[in-house]
């Protein structure tokens, strides 16, 4: 089956006055299957927003091609626009003086929906994102998180097959973030495809079937979220929390242990195989270290290792 989204050698530069152009996307090739939730990760300035904008037709690529459900984003702009929904994070982008409902009614018209349909969908969506009770309040009285929910409702109004979400949960409270994740999963069950740009590793781990890591406009890796730890070597390990290094030193002497590593908040013991891990776990439990667990490198670790010691540089 044809991919929901495919980008091929996509390139985008931004001209600057009296300086070299910025290369925001550098021959990026990426494919997202239908019904997939695909995470887009990368440091500030990596090119995530640029990619989302090109795929949703608000920005033209400098070179390369991109297709959404088989339609070229440059040549078939109109078709693509009816198929995709764009949700930009943040609290701007709405008519602040108007009510949430009025904002949606106006937006529905931009998607050529008739008044009855928009009204019905607006009510249902306001309910779904938890804004039903505030539907008639002007948006200027909304908190940041409430605005973001309204953005999401707006992006869903025309029932798009493919959704591009750019940091949709920055600023949502934990309860709202969980509700948001549940909503995304529900929408996926309805058959929709998602591209989710985020800095939240837990969110990406919880939601995404696959993730792509980009930096300086280049694709560093794409992999299944569940098994992404493999990228750091196909290794067995056991993690545990302990205040001092005595256990670590003792463990390092065991024959089944290949390495012991100090991570930020815990120790990591690398073992030769699954059996070795089992024995290390038993060894730790015997010594009352109940925090011990069989571990795989997390998405965050993969991210940190792959992007490297960039610090604050962009």
């Amino acid at each position: 089956m044809e991919a929901a989204v495919s980008a091929s050698a996509l390139r985008r530069t931004y001209e600057r006055k009296r300086k070299d152009a910025v290369v925001a996307l550098d021959d990026l090739t990426l494919s997202i299957a239908r019904n997939e939730i695909h995470g887009l990760l990368g440091p500030n300035g990596a090119g995530k927003t640029t990619l989302v904008k090109i795929l949703s037709t608000v920005l033209l690529p400098t070179a390369g091609t991109a297709r959404v459900l088989g339609h070229d984003v440059v040549a078939e702009t109109r078709t693509v626009r009816t198929l995709v929904g764009l949700v930009l994070g943040g609290d701007r982008g709405l008519y602040d003086r108007l009510s949430a409902r009025r904002n949606l009614l106006f937006w529905g018209a931009l998607y050529k929906l008739d008044a009855r349909t928009v009204r019905r969908r607006a009510d249902a969506l306001l309910e779904r994102v938890g804004l039903a009770e505030r539907a008639d309040d002007p948006v200027e009285r909304f908190s940041r998180g409430m605005r973001q929910r309204l953005h999401l409702a707006r992006g869903l109004l025309h029932e798009p097959q493919v959704l591009f979400l750019d940091e949709p949960t920055s600023g949502l409270d934990p309860v709202a973030a969980v509700a948001f994740r549940r909503l995304v999963l529900e929408l996926r069950d309805e058959g929709r495809t998602f591209l989710l740009a985020t800095h939240d590793m837990d969110e990406a781990t919880a939601l995404c079937d696959r993730v792509s890591l980009i930096d300086r406009g280049r694709l560093l890796l794409t992999d299944d979220t569940a098994s992404i730890g493999r990228i750091l070597g196909d290794r067995e390990c056991v993690d545990f929390v302990h205040d001092d290094g005595t256990h670590a030193e003792a463990l390092a002497l065991l024959p089944e242990v290949t390495d012991v590593e100090r991570l930020d908040d815990r120790w990591r013991v690398h073992t030769a195989d699954r059996d070795g891990s089992r024995r290390v776990l038993a060894w730790l439990v015997e010594r009352d270290v109940l925090t011990a667990r069989h571990a795989q490198p997390t998405l965050e670790e993969v991210y940190l290792r792959t992007v490297g010691d960039r610090g604050m540089r962009v």
């Binding site: 608000v58 995709v84 050529k112």
Partner: peptide
């Protein structure tokens, strides 16, 4: 910031 989502509409 309404311009971008407006351009994204058909």
């Amino acid at each position: 910031g309404r311009f971008t989502p407006m351009v994204a509409a058909p």
